[in-house]
């Protein structure tokens, strides 16, 4: 069994905007080990989100190799890619991205519906993961009835519910005040420590990055160890 959970080799990505070509990722090499808690820091516009979309199979690289959990990713089959995303990736976004009309419990269950799982089973699992992130008491609330920190906890439960290979969090504390942000960071560290969940966190905040096991820095599309 491969020790690496994620392994990317010489990933490149550029966008064409009008006549000019913008090179966003200029040959990224990165390996994330099983059970690792990795922080990616870098200035705004350096390509952090682009890299995360790449890792999350939402974006196709121009060139380079990508393996996740021992599987080489091929980009020609959208069905396979969607299924891989559903099973291997758990996303946490800065803006939470909960569905406004669904309750917390229903929001958590969304990834499982795409596995064709039975409704009862989905509810049961969703509740378990809400409890895991200490937000079960808000199970029947809708997003607009919850604080930012509470919403982010629900979003983390949603990322966890499918038992993915890796959690990808893009500035998960970016929209929260400092205290709540620290609570969310603490939650990530606990999940990593107690359950051995592999997590990649993108952040602006060097202080938060220090709390992670390892940090790398992206500057202008190139990666450096920090």
């Amino acid at each position: 069994m491969n020790e690496q959970m994620l392994d990317i080799v010489d990933i490149r990505k550029s966008y064409r905007v009008g006549p000019t070509e913008v090179n966003v990722l200029k040959g990224i090499n990165l390996a994330v080990a099983r059970g690792e808690l990795l922080a990616i820091i870098g200035p705004s516009g350096s390509g952090k989100s682009t890299l995360m979309h790449m890792l999350g199979l939402l974006e196709k690289p121009d060139s380079g190799l990508y393996s996740i959990d021992g599987t080489r990713v091929t980009y020609d089959d959208d069905r396979a890619l969607s299924a891989l995303r559903n099973r291997k990736i758990g996303f946490v976004f800065q803006q939470y991205h909960l569905l406004p009309k669904l309750t917390a419990l229903e929001n958590v269950g969304v990834p499982l519906t795409y596995r064709g799982m039975a409704a009862d089973e989905i509810r049961k699992r969703s509740r378990t993961y809400l409890a895991k992130v200490d937000i079960e008491y808000r199970a029947d609330h809708r997003p607009n009835e919850m604080s930012g920190g509470q919403q982010q906890r629900v979003a983390i439960a949603r990322a966890l519910v499918g038992q993915p290979a890796i959690i990808l969090a893009d500035e998960p504390t970016g929209a929260l005040d400092q205290k709540t942000g620290e609570e969310i960071m603490e939650l990530f560290r606990r999940l990593n420590r107690e359950d051995g969940i592999t997590i990649v966190i993108i952040t602006h905040n060097p202080a938060l990055a220090c709390q992670c096991g390892r940090a790398v820095k992206i500057i202008d599309g190139m990666i450096y160890s920090a």
């Binding site: 999350g56 939402l58 959208d78 069905r79 969607s82 299924a83 995303r85 559903n86 099973r87 990736i89 996303f91 991205h97 569905l99 969304v110 990834p111 795409y114 596995r115 949603r158 499918g162």
Partner: peptide, 10 residues
């Protein structure tokens, strides 16, 4: 976009 990110097929 979110649903696609969570693994919805086209």
């Amino acid at each position: 976009g979110l649903r696609r990110a969570l693994g919805a097929q086209r």
